[in-house]
């Protein structure tokens, strides 16, 4: 919910119909997310049906404040706005806040990271390498 991946959840008779949408087309987590939802609902005593939808296309704007907080706590810097995002990814600006020491003295290591949705950064104050969630609009 807080990532904006779960779009709707409604009852149709006794069955919960849940629509989920991928962050990136090739997101390998979608099957796991679908299975987890199914399992959680089953444990709560509900039958469910999971549907993968593509439209409207996911955007980082759908990540809630709570979701952003959870990302930061996990060690992933939350997405900046589109303009700042361009500045850090293309123009070498130092605007991403280090998830470890909160310094903004951070630099881009690679536009692509461990998954399609992230870029790699490093903090020049505490030296911590960390992921940044790229802005997607």
């Amino acid at each position: 919910m807080d990532m904006g991946v779960v779009r709707t959840a409604i009852f149709v008779k006794e069955v919960v119909h849940v629509q989920i949408t991928p962050t990136y087309s090739g997101c390998p987590a979608m099957d796991v997310i679908g299975d987890d939802i199914k399992m959680a609902l089953k444990n709560a005593g509900y039958h469910s049906k999971i549907e993968l939808i593509l439209a409207p296309a996911w955007t980082t704007d759908w990540i809630t404040p709570k979701g952003r907080k959870a990302l930061e706590n996990y060690g992933i810097a939350a997405p900046l706005n589109a303009e700042a995002d361009k500045d850090v990814l293309l123009n070498g600006k130092r605007l991403v806040t280090c998830t470890n020491c909160k310094s903004q003295n951070t630099r881009l290591v690679s536009q692509f990271g461990s998954t399609a949705c992230k870029a790699q950064f490093q903090c020049d104050d505490c030296q911590e390498p960390f992921d940044y969630f790229k802005c997607l609009k």
Binding site: S25, F112, T115
Partner: peptide, 10 residues
């Protein structure tokens, strides 16, 4: 390989 993954997803 990230680009490859995007393409396979599409």
């Amino acid at each position: 390989t990230n680009i490859s993954l995007d393409l396979f997803g599409q």
